[in-house]
Amino acid sequence: MKPALPWWRTERVRAGLLSLLILAVILGVWHLATLPKAAVASSGPALTPEQIEYLKLMGKDPGVQADAGTGTSGFPTLLQMGRTVREHLSQPFYDKGPNDKGVGLQLMHSLGRVGAGYLLAALLAIPLGFAIGMSPLVYRALDPFIQVLKPISPLAWMPLALYTIKDAALSGIFVIFICSIWPMLINTAFGVAGVRRDWLNVARTLEVSPWRTAFEVILPAAAPTILTGMRISMGIAWLVIVAAEMLVGGTGIGYFVWNEWNNLSLPNVIFAILMIGLVGMVLDTLFARLQKAVTYVD
């Protein structure tokens, strides 16, 4: 038996250190890329008229550019991003009107829409996936419809949803529903169809009822595959709701990104992008842990 490695030599610790190193490199490149250029000779202008106009459009004062730590590229520096992060995280749930809400409120609106659409998709996709996986006849009957509807971009449904539902929030929920249903449906059908025949034959031999067979034999065996589909669907749902909220406006993290871009606030846009990524990572981690919990190792 091999002796246990010290904690600092374990794979998890080494992976964490490598991640920190990569993060340090990224931040270092960012810092170097946004450093203000050296001042030119006093006899000539520091900036061209085009650069001055651009800085004004970005909401910056060309006269105090160097003092503020802003690079001539117009991209925010790490100092500016630090101030932006501190400002948003200090009051994440403030509400000062339709176009001025904290990032926490915007994320809650987006997560609410994702949760509603995702739950509706699961309520339809999982039972239907069971039926498809257990019946070749149902599979052959529904397969043409699945193959036609599955490749359609979720955002392509938005104009139809807005026309028929006539509500931006409900239209966003519909988009989540229509994009979340396919991975769950296909993976559920695949998992149910892949259950070992021996287990089903034993259930028939013992005269176990169909409902009990479904819940005590098929569902536990297909659970890892079903959770895989649910995990994929959640990633797609979170991806789509951001784009949908940019189109319909109102509330949500997607609308927050678009509104801050219209306000020419690039630090706020970058902060929102980071928050979208962090929330997506948390959601994926939760499903990964749930998938691991239902996976049986032979």
Rank of each mutant, 00 (worst) to 15 (best):
R12I: 14
A15I: 08
I22W: 14
H31T: 02
P36A: 09
K37L: 05
K37C: 03
A38G: 08
A39M: 08
V40N: 09
G44S: 15
P45S: 15
P45Y: 05
P45D: 13
A46H: 02
A46G: 10
A46P: 01
Y54E: 06
Y54C: 05
L55H: 11
K56R: 15
K56E: 13
M58G: 06
K60S: 05
V64C: 04
V64D: 04
V64H: 03
A66W: 03
G69L: 08
L79R: 12
T84N: 11
R86F: 13
E87Q: 13
D95S: 14
V103M: 09
Q106M: 15
Q106K: 07
L107F: 08
L111H: 04
A116K: 08
G117R: 09
L120R: 04
A121Y: 09
A121E: 00
A125H: 03
P127F: 01
F130G: 00
F130S: 03
S135G: 09
P136N: 06
L142K: 03
P144Y: 07
I152H: 10
I152R: 11
I152T: 11
M158W: 02
M158K: 05
L162H: 07
T164W: 14
I165Y: 05
K166R: 15
D167I: 09
A169W: 01
G172L: 04
I176G: 00
I178N: 01
I178A: 08
N187L: 03
V192F: 06
W199H: 13
V202G: 14
V202K: 08
A203G: 11
A203H: 03
S209L: 06
A214N: 07
E216L: 13
P220Y: 05
L227Q: 00
T228G: 12
G229K: 00
S233I: 04
A237L: 10
A237N: 01
W238K: 08
W238P: 02
I241M: 11
A243D: 10
A244L: 10
G252H: 02
I253P: 00
I253Q: 01
G254T: 03
Y255D: 08
W258V: 15
W261T: 14
N263D: 10
P267W: 06
F271G: 00
F271C: 03
I273F: 13
M275G: 01
M275R: 04
L278G: 12
V279C: 11
G280S: 09
T285Y: 11
F287W: 06
R289Y: 14
